[in-house]
Structure formats: C-alpha cells, structure tokens
C-alpha cells in the first residue's frame, strides 16, 4: 500500500481527521507521518506548545499503522502505551515515525519517536503495545 492510499483510508476515521496528519512513508514494519500545526492541538496557549496528549495520540496512530496496513485489515487494538516527553513541541509541523520491534501472532510492540526540525532532537519517544487478535 502506498502512503497516499493509506492517508486516504485514514480520512475515514473521525479522530484522524481531527489530527489531520499525512502518511509519508510506509513499509512492512515502519511508518512515518507529518502533522501540520493547528490551534486546536495546543496544550499551553501562552507558549503555544503542543498538547502532550495530542503528541501521544499522533504517535499511537502512526504506531497502529506501522503494525497493520492494508485495505481489509482490522486496526490493531491498543493495550498500553508509555510516552517520554523530552522537549516542548513548539508551533510548527510535527513528524512521527514508528518501527515495529516485535510482531508475534497475538501481540506487537512498537517504538515511536516524534520530532520537529531535527530528528536527532526528538520531542517525545513512545513504546506502544497492540493486541492483534
């Protein structure tokens, strides 16, 4: 599946329309996406930082796509997540990538990172577990 096709499919999910991100890379165990800045994603209106929960949600979406993408596949069921917030995410586009570290018959474990201008300076990192059955 191409990134464009994956993005089109995502438009069917109301919450993903709210986040309004685009898939930029899609491979067997990897996905990347970009999300434009919007007022509704702000958590700290004085400093105009992204809301931490929005960052976690964005990474969760990209993590889920990296685990299973295809026209007929059910989305994986999230079990839990852990996010480390490393820096404030300021006004501007947000990038996320997800890499499946292990995918078994029942479970998948995914590592994610989120950054803005420089991918060596992540704003957050995440670890997500999904149930596949």
């Amino acid at each position: 599946m191409t990134p464009d096709l994956a993005t089109q499919q995502l438009r069917k999910v109301p919450f993903f329309q709210f986040l309004d991100f685009t898939i930029t890379e899609l491979a067997e165990t990897h996905a990347a996406a970009t999300m434009p800045f919007a007022e509704r994603l702000i958590g700290n209106p004085i400093m105009e930082y992204y809301h931490g929960g929005i960052i976690a949600s964005f990474m969760e979406a990209v993590a889920a796509i990296s685990v299973s993408h295809g026209p007929d596949l059910q989305p994986p069921k999230p079990i839990n997540l852990t996010v480390d917030y490393l820096r404030p995410a300021v006004k501007g586009a947000l990038m996320a990538e997800a890499t499946v570290t292990r995918k078994g018959k029942r479970m998948a474990s995914v590592r994610t990172a989120c950054w803005q201008d420089d991918d060596s300076r992540p704003v957050a990192e995440g670890l997500y577990h999904f149930l596949l059955v």
Binding site: H51, I54, S57, P78
Partner: peptide, 12 residues
C-alpha cells in the same frame, strides 16, 4: 472512542 483521546484527557 479512540484511545488517544483517553490519553489526551488524562494528560489534561
């Protein structure tokens, strides 16, 4: 409800 919403809600 998408799980991410629950996460954002808890954070807030």
């Amino acid at each position: 409800l998408h799980g991410g919403v629950l996460t954002a809600l808890l954070d807030s």
